[in-house]
Nucleic acid binder design. Structure first.
Lengths: 256, 256
DNA sequence: TAGTGGTCTAGACCACTGT
DNA sequence: CAGTGGTCTAGACCACTAT
């Protein structure tokens, strides 16, 4: 039995055991809050794992798990034998994460919409087939869109999906919704990761026209292959991005 | 000596308790090996945490820690109530990691060298000062290099360092050694992460000349600000990359 | 119901850091 | 030396999945 009776419950200093969020997450949220609000400033030493455990009446391992979370997010660094410290604030907090376009824009308070240029079945060319790991000629579903922020074009997307997924997507609101969002919330796909290959190219005429730049203007070309959690390829895209309008930011961690 | 003693020691099936590497790492290495060699194939279920614990005479938490490692590296995915499974192999295994240029090239069996164009003290212009978080006009150290692979140019790097670090670097072998490598192994810096902003630009004449491309050719422009583990800015760089010669690849994870 | 991963506890020993 | 984080144990209950 666990402490079924209430009166003897030790204080948790705000952490509640039965809550929807696990204890280690509650603690890491609490600490994150205190760091962001300046209660713990840059380079300050945080309470030790033992202290956190005592103070919140949790086990040391749980406190440790909370600190581990913050360390992975780059808010905290730990030195053996010395303690855990608040990292100096950096431009982009947190690891590089896979996000959809509208998702990333709305996180910055901007609204993104799409103009759908083409949407329908196609067959896998050899390069696409190779990336999606299907035989050449396999029926696929293709979507071509121009992404707009504040009514002005920022990128041209050419996406390929497995035929069934594509047909499902075609029925949804591709103008306002992220494909990633639709995949996860409508199609029941559990997205895992995506491999990117990034380069720079001169704009071809048709794409230049869609993006409102002169032919030959430099564009960011991102080849993105997304997988679900099992590693199954789900979505292969070419993104041509006007980098004068959008900056691609990411944070890489040095392996420990 | 392995098998230090002995009679009362429970079997560890190859895992040695006193070894330099911790048990959870030994186990995760062992599993990684079995996945790579195909003993556990794509989508196979791995032994449960309990089984691994029993089999190797370790605690369940330690087995769990090993699986967590593999999950973060994208080799394994876990489903509550079902088990842990081998992910399908993907192009780039592992999270996006911060690596130096030579480091990344040599991982692919290529040799990278640098031609140093300029190396010496300078003062922080406003944009550089802002990124490195020093007052404008602060003395810095500047290095301009062309990176070569197989004797042909692939990128032009313009780097700024704190003055003392830069002077230290200037005495070292910048032709063959990565700056990251020197920072870590000679200067005693513990690198943490780096923020990148990626765009595409048309090559200016002087850079075009150095890279052997026509003026106006599209180049990848990477603005990279590297920090040490404490979050202190260490190195601010502009990288102009011939993306016809090098592809920037990275893997982003969907947040859990 | 049985088995899985997710969370949590209350200890323990170690290596490393400061004094 | 005392305090810190790093590793490890032997349990426990929970939520979820399959049968």
């Amino acid at each position: 039995m666990t402490e079924t009776d209430q009166t003897t419950q030790p204080r948790r200093s705000g952490l509640t055991p039965g809550a929807p969020a696990p204890l280690y997450q509650q603690l890491s949220d609490l600490l994150r809050e205190r760091i962001k609000s300046g209660i713990y400033g840059p380079l300050d030493r945080l309470p030790s794992e033992h202290e956190l455990a005592r103070e919140h009446s949790i086990s040391r391992i749980t406190a440790r798990q909370a600190l581990g979370e913050l360390e992975r997010n780059g808010l905290v660094f730990r030195l053996q034998g010395r303690g855990s410290f608040v990292a100096r604030p950096t431009v982009v907090q947190g690891l590089a994460q896979l996000t959809g376009f509208a998702e990333a824009m709305s996180a910055q308070g901007l609204e993104a919409v799409s103009r759908v240029l083409r949407l329908g079945p196609t067959r896998a060319a050899t390069d696409v087939a190779e990336r999606l790991r299907v035989p050449p000629g396999t029926p696929l579903f293709e979507i071509r869109r121009v992404r707009l922020v504040n009514d002005s074009p920022v990128s041209f997307d050419h996406s390929y999906f497995p035929a069934d997924l594509g047909r499902r997507l075609a029925r949804e609101d591709l103008v306002r919704r992220d494909v990633f969002w639709l995949l996860e919330n409508v199609c029941g796909v559990r997205l895992g990761a995506a491999d990117h290959q990034i380069g720079a190219v001169a704009a071809e005429e048709d794409i230049a026209l869609q993006l409102g730049v002169p032919a030959g203007a430099p564009l960011l070309l991102i080849d993105r292959l997304s997988y679900d959690v099992t590693g199954m390829p789900i979505d292969y895209e070419h993104l041509y991005v006007r980098s004068d309008r959008v900056r691609y930011g990411l944070r890489l961690e040095r392996p420990r």
